[in-house]
Design a protein around this nucleic acid. Sequence first.
DNA 1: AAACGTTGCAACCGCTTTTTC
DNA 2: AGAAAAAGCGGTTGCAACGTT
Length: 237
Amino acid sequence: MEGTLGVRKGAWNNLEDDLLKACVQQYGEGKWHLVPKRAGLNRCRKSCRLRWLNYLNPNIKRGEFTNDEVDLILRLHKLLGNRWSLIAGRLPERTPNDVKNYWNSYIKKKLSSNKEDVNARPKENTVMEPHIVIKPQPRTISTTSPWLRGKVIKEDESENKQCNVTSEACGASSPECNINWLGTILEENDTSLLGEQNDTPFEDLNWDKEHFAMTPTNIEDFLREDQSWSDIVDFKW
DNA sequence: AAACGTTGCAACCGCTTTTTC
DNA sequence: AGAAAAAGCGGTTGCAACGTT
């Protein structure tokens, strides 16, 4: 099975998996455009990346989602919409593709079960309320911002150009920081939703939550006028 | 046992965002 | 500053496995 450019498509075989694994183990993740050549694979970079991230990566957890995970997915989805990578970022060892697939199956199940409940259906001519999705907005932090509380922004000296605020004052300038920032918000408002394994989600982050506490003003920035936190975080199907 | 329907998951595609030059 | 390349993301599809009739 080959594509228009002679690149193989379709299911991966064991040999291809072995070649890709060996390549990633030797050179590490990233530089995906070099992977097909390095590994001797007749696959495009996207295909290699996807195969590794969704299947070959040894850090992926397989099997059914636990109740805690499902609960977290529901709440995060209500908060973030279809931002699967962000949602998966809060679920250790789950991939965005897994979460997305699970969600799609879950929705299908829910829809089919709801069909039986005729009364639950909206009447004809009923206008459905639009689903408001709250998306995190990029925040620019000036060097004098009170968010930093006197911390220093380092000029990028290392490979990590995106999150160069000192660890204690990490803002939301990179995807990882976004996730941490979201975690803070969620934890501030409903610690139960983080589940058992996430009781100490900041243990590995080296930064002090107190330096990043949400003030009422910050929260108002995040919510619509008619919303409270319980509207967003207390998910009920 | 065969035909058909459903489900779950891997993979592809097109688009957007980020990085590099 | 702008263009090109690379990386990343979400929507969608294809198909094998499984269940039901």
